[in-house]
């Protein structure tokens, strides 16, 4: 309880949003009586009402139920599309920052190569080659996304490795793995962690974009981006189909951003 009092309000709000999302993902049935895949031909394109707070789509499927059932997939996207590039990029950035020299020069050119292409274009190109689907999307995001984590990590490691506490480690004869993982990593990881949480919001948007384009989650799986894509044809007559899943994305993104910002303050090193 004391911990909660010490946490800043934005972080608490962010964590509350994420906790609600997690609850949606774990037990979607507990929040709505409707089946997200169940057709109801008596309520086609029904406007939001007490019975259907988010309205229904062209098949009479309840949009609240679909938005909630989509949470599991979107949270999975948020996690996997940041964890894999995050781990790979952190490890590469750690080694590049530490060894420097030729390794660093090669790394620089590789980064140039990847960032020359717009992120989304490169991901779409890779997914197009590998074929649509979530697993291939994670592979594509990892191939492109590690660069950003590696750059962050590299620059932080270059600062940390010149600290006198690292010199002290060397004078004490510590092994390089010990210095890298026990001393440099914990002191250099903060920007990466903060970026990762913010990146989760971007990952949801990316997953939604790819879903919208038909390259991410495949129907009939409900996914926020797919829901919006479904709603675009009815936007003039039934705007709620696209509007409510879009709002959910915004709120989820807000949850991750607030958590990321709060984490940045919380993890600040006291010197």
């Amino acid at each position: 309880m004391r911990l909660f009092k010490r946490l800043p309000a934005p972080l608490l709000l962010g964590l509350a949003i994420l906790a609600l999302m997690a609850a949606f993902a774990i037990a979607p049935g507990a929040f709505t009586p409707y089946d997200p895949l169940g057709f109801d031909f008596s309520a086609l394109l029904a406007a939001p009402s007490l019975a259907h707070p988010f309205g229904t789509d062209q098949f009479g499927r309840d949009l609240l139920a679909r938005s909630i059932s989509a949470t599991a997939i979107d949270l999975q996207i948020a996690l996997f599309a940041t964890i894999f590039p995050g781990l790979l990029g952190t490890l590469i950035g750690l080694l590049v920052g530490w060894y420097g020299g030729v390794v660093d020069a090669l790394f620089g050119r590789l980064v140039d190569l990847v960032v020359t292409f717009p992120f989304l274009v490169l991901v779409i190109a890779i997914v197009a080659v590998l074929g649509p689907g979530l697993v291939n999307m994670y592979i594509a995001v990892t191939i492109v996304g590690w660069v950003f984590y590696a750059r962050l990590m590299r620059s932080e490691v270059m600062v940390q490795k010149n600290g006198e506490y690292i010199a002290a480690c060397k004078v004490l004869g510590y092994s390089t793995p010990r210095i890298l993982f026990r001393h440099i990593l914990p002191n250099a990881i903060r920007p990466v962690l903060v970026y990762a949480v913010t990146d989760m919001a971007l990952a949801i948007l990316l997953g939604s974009s790819l879903g919208y384009l038909g390259l991410g989650a495949q129907p009939p799986e409900a996914e926020w981006g797919v829901l919006i894509a479904d709603g675009k044809n009815f936007f003039t007559t039934a705007p709620w189909i696209a509007l409510f899943p879009g709002t959910v994305i915004v709120i989820a993104g807000l949850g991750f951003s607030l958590t990321g910002d709060g984490l940045a303050d919380l993890l600040e090193v006291k010197r």
Binding site: G163, Y165, A167, P186, N187, R271
Partner: peptide
């Protein structure tokens, strides 16, 4: 070392 502020691992 000279600088007692940077010669200890803060974590």
């Amino acid at each position: 070392f000279q600088d007692p502020y940077s010669s200890l691992n803060p974590r």
